[in-house]
């Protein structure tokens, strides 16, 4: 594989974390336009851990995930009481606040005679963990996909658990969930925290893959994409957002004549899907039908043998 393919695949992997993050919140019935904030916070926190404090990469990713997760839970505790429309706007406001604060923050320390750390609008350069360990892009890509697989398995397990069922109850009808004894705000804060962790992991990986981050990358464009992936791929299963990512980064990136017009095609696609399939390609009903079909086929197989 040449470096271009590795970079595209790695980008797919890293973007998938934000997509899953936005998906987790969509599952509980709230729409966040601001998951890029936690991606950014994770990137900066993880970068600071390895480049400034010289911690190992796993500690960097852990710190990135924790910082993003805690921040997301905190913000969620403040804003998840709001009605849907207001909550969505508040996520947008918070994400822009984070981006503007990162444009201002300058904290640099001297490492090996060089100044390292966030430098306001210039961004955070020299997150050189990969170079120092002599790790190739391909190897890092494997790390990305290993973590993505781990996260996906965790999400699929949650989906099968009571917690997953609770998240779907909130997403389907929050008043009914409340009437059945669920603390709606509490569980949504939990979901927001988990979503923050996912975005934070993605950001931590991104910071180390590109070796530098700048606040401009965490703009609303990233937020729109993260949200749209789940809406394209479908809210019926955690594979939905990944399908969304694959369609966008894989298909639209690959088709030549779309290049340069990608946002026009992408925007139109999402707008049409919202009209005709508001819960995406793999929505709950299709997932249910697919599962039923698999089960029948499994039964027939068992009966035949």
């Amino acid at each position: 594989m040449d470096d271009y393919v590795i970079t595209v695949l790695s980008n797919i992997g890293m973007i998938s974390f934000v997509a899953l993050s936005a998906y987790l919140l969509l599952l509980t019935g709230v729409i966040s336009f601001g998951q890029q904030a936690y991606f950014g916070l994770g990137a900066y926190a993880a970068g600071a851990a390895t480049a400034m404090l010289l911690l190992p990469i796993w500690a960097g990713i852990l710190i990135g995930a924790c910082v993003a997760g805690l921040m997301a839970a905190l913000v969620g505790a403040l804003t998840l009481r709001l009605r849907g429309l207001y909550f969505s706007i508040s996520t947008l406001a918070f994400a822009e606040m984070v981006r503007l604060v990162l444009l201002i923050v300058e904290v640099q320390v001297e490492v090996d005679g060089e100044l390292v750390g966030p430098a306001g609008a210039e961004g955070f350069h020299d997150i050189r963990w990969m170079f120092e360990r002599d790790i190739s892009l391909g190897e890092f890509m494997l790390l990305i996909y290993a973590l993505l697989a781990l996260v996906l398995v965790a999400l699929l397990l949650i989906e099968r658990s009571r917690l997953g069922s609770i998240f779907r109850m909130l997403g389907s009808d929050d008043l009914l969930a409340d009437m059945q004894g669920l603390n709606v705000v509490g569980y949504r804060v939990l979901a927001a925290g988990l979503a923050g962790v996912l975005a934070g992991i993605g950001g931590a990986l991104y910071a180390h893959f590109t070796t530098y981050v700048e606040p401009q990358f965490f703009n609303v464009m990233l937020g729109v994409h993260a949200l749209a992936y789940g809406l394209i791929g479908g809210l019926g299963t955690a594979f939905g957002p990944l399908i969304g990512v694959a369609i966008d980064v894989g298909f639209l990136e690959a088709v030549r004549f779309i290049q340069g017009y990608r946002m026009i095609v992408f925007g139109g696609l999402v707008a049409l899907l919202l009209i005709f399939m508001p819960r995406g390609l793999l929505d709950e009903e299709r997932v249910h039908r697919l599962k039923a079909r698999f089960r029948r086929r499994g039964d027939a197989h068992a009966a035949g043998s």
Partner: peptide, 16 residues
Amino acid sequence: FPTMTVFQNVWAAQHA
């Protein structure tokens, strides 16, 4: 919960 099965609806009420 319209996109849950009959069984899941009742189970959800119980574990909630």
